[in-house]
Amino acid sequence: MRMIIHDLDEDFNERLKTKSEEVIWADGKYAPCQGCFNCWTKNPATCSLKDSLHEMCRVVGQADDVVIITENCYGEYSQAVKNILDRTIGVSTPMSTYRGGEMHHTLRYGKKGKLKVIVYGDVSDNEKATWKLMTERNRINHGYQLKELVFVDSIADLEVSKI
C-alpha cells in the first residue's frame, strides 16, 4: 500500500486522494509528542494522547511506500508533518539492534519499500544538504530500501499526476 503524508491545503488533499490508497493530511490539529515512550512500553503502537494521531503509527505501519510532501523548515520537515513523524515512533519497537553499522530500533512492521520526500518552498544549498542527510537517516531508521528526494520551488509546481 502506498501512503501520502502532506501539509498542503484541503483542495490538494482531495486531489491527492485520487492518487493514493491512503492520504494523511497533516493539518496540525493535534498535539506534539510528549516523550513518554508509552507507545513502546505501556500500550504498544498506541499513542497516549487521544487525538487524531492516537493510532497513527499503526496506519503508517501498514504502508509499503510512503510519500511525504512538506514545506521546508531550515532543512527539516514542517511542524505539522514532523509532529506526525514524532508521534509514530511506535512503528518500531523499544528493542535495539545494529543496522548499517549503527544502533537502531527494530522494526515492528518489517522492512519497507520506498520513502519519497517532496520538499517545497525556498530551500538554500545548505538546507538541501541537510535534507539529503536527514532523509537518508530516516530511510535507515525506518527500514526503507529506497529513497527519493525532490525539491520544488512552490506548491504551484507540484503536479499531482507525477507524485
Binding site: 508509552n38 513502546w40 512500553t41
Partner: peptide
C-alpha cells in the same frame, strides 16, 4: 543495557503483555 532497561520499564508499565512486538492494525481507521 538499553534492551534490559526497556524490558523492565515495559514489564512495570504492562506493555510487554499488550502485544509488545505485534504488528497491530488500526482499530479506529
Amino acid at each position: 543495557f538499553a534492551d534490559i532497561f526497556f524490558t523492565i520499564i515495559s514489564i512495570v508499565k504492562g506493555g510487554i503483555f499488550r502485544g509488545w512486538f505485534s504488528k497491530k492494525r488500526p482499530a479506529s481507521y
